[in-house]
Design a protein around this nucleic acid. Sequence first.
RNA 1: UGGGGAGUCGCCAAGUGGUAAGGCACUGGAUUUUGAUUCCAGCAUACGUAGGUUCGAUCCCUACCUCCCCAGCCA
Length: 569
Amino acid sequence: MKDKSVAHSSADIVVSNFIRSIIDEDNRSGKWQRRVETRFPPEPNGYLHIGHAKSICLNFGLARDYKGVCHLRFDDTNPEKEAQEYVDAICENVAWLGFDWEGRQHYSSDYFDQLYAFAEYLITQGKAYVESLNADEMREHRGTLTSPGQNSPYRDRSIEESLDLFRRMKEGEFADGRYVLRAKIDMASSNMNMRDPVIYRIRHIRHQRTGEKWCIYPMYDYTHCISDALENITHSLCTLEFEDHRPLYDWVLDQLVDKVPCHPQQIEFARLNLTYAVMSKRKLIELVEGGLVDGWDDPRLSTLVGLRRRGFTPKSIRLFVERIGVSKADSWIDMSVLEDCLREDLNESAPRRIAILKPLKLIIDNYPCDQEEDCLAPNHPKKPEWEKRVVPLSKTIYIERDDFMEEPAKGYFRLSPGAEVRLRYAYIVKCVSVEKNVAGEIEAIHCTYDPDTKSGTEGATTRKVKGNIHWLSVKHVLQAEVRLYDRLFSDPYPDAGDKDYKASLNPNSKEITVAYVEQSLAEVKPEQAFQFERNGYFIADRVDTKLGKPVFNRVVTLRDSWGKVSGLA
RNA sequence: UGGGGAGUCGCCAAGUGGUAAGGCACUGGAUUUUGAUUCCAGCAUACGUAGGUUCGAUCCCUACCUCCCCAGCCA
């Protein structure tokens, strides 16, 4: 394994994958003079999701590891759907993930002039022609998966006529759809993409960057390979569904062999599927526009803005992509892998605080009514240099409802009548009675405390109790809105096959509650992350948190081996 | 029934002629004032199936099975 892996910037060990193998081989053979240049090529027509993060981390990560560079290129050849708003959002997302394109921000539309000139060249070489058939007629001529297509009657029109028509297309003489420019390849090809694909169409529509300059726009297959070549890309990564397009990618560049600087290699990898999530642009739009979620940045969505708002850190997402690897096999990654990456990051970096999510009042009967005292709680159990904070104790406190059971289940070692438990960072208490209302519901519980057992004193070590629960003094709490998020879908494969993903929406994916938290939390800034001890990781909502009035989102719970065996919570 | 891909532990994923890395999950156990963390141990006689070649096959050959993608003037 040692010799098959490659060290990367952070001294981690990176496992080999088929793309690295290709690059390694290219470096050995000198194909690119050891140059590695990649690009992340989003279409600015929607919001990025976790699947894009895989591509971003791959492209930028490879460039980083091989001392190369990675471009950010907007594939903006369809002005009907694209907008500057998306460009801005995408830039923000890529930067947030921690990658820097160092000014290499390009647009396919930067190449419209060259693309046009190359198209004229193709016509003059007899490699492209103007088509007069309309879309329906073209479809009829295209044949099927098992039968060859038929040549268009316009396929052999003269070079002069095609050139004239193409120029007039550009000049705006014709209505949308009247003509298209097609590559002349092979209508009988078993690969549908090679049956004279359309490479230019007429669209009288303003482009967000080139304005009114063009009324004809190039198609993806024609544009992408040329853009890659013009940018000197060496390895052009894309997802599996473009595998069939590779012959076309290569065909176009082969026609232009002495006109473009290089011929990049297209390499396809499997796109990311995540359980309990949907990834397609269409479904995401339906969820947002149908009001089934609260916008593109709904914390339950797998969009990057959603994940960010939920509280996933850039580091956790990078770790996730590293962990899942890359291959050509269709796969579904379990959501718990992503969640665990967040835990791994925040366990290290998040200060600890106490929050009571579902409060139950506890009265310490033998604690003086007017007494208050400071308890010291470390901000991080493994990092003494982060120091301690004060958590005040008084006679009446809140504990978590789940930390008391009137009739304890087998193996339960928290509080129950007669049982002893430690109030974390304070004293050992013993439950002496339970107070109920007329309906028989528990209103409060009464305990006595042992004054000799305060944490940090000698007495604390003489007596051990297994249970250890968190608490907050009633008169020292701050109320804060807490949003408890869970998976958006209850089905791990919400859209597998022909399933209606909306049918498996989890009705409990969002629960809003008012919790009691430490008063120091009044000062938190948006996006500050904490571990609420024994509860989970929480982040101050980046939109709704105001000074003195924090709003927290639960990103993920802590691992809970008790919850697992007890079937509770 | 055409073409292009993929099938290695529950989920990912290395390896590609010399006798199955790693991560996550899981199971034990230790430490623990978070039933958290950390630590330690265990976890594929086995690489879709059936044949074949070979001293030896996950890796080569043959056949078969399963799954994914392709008939936009979207990307």
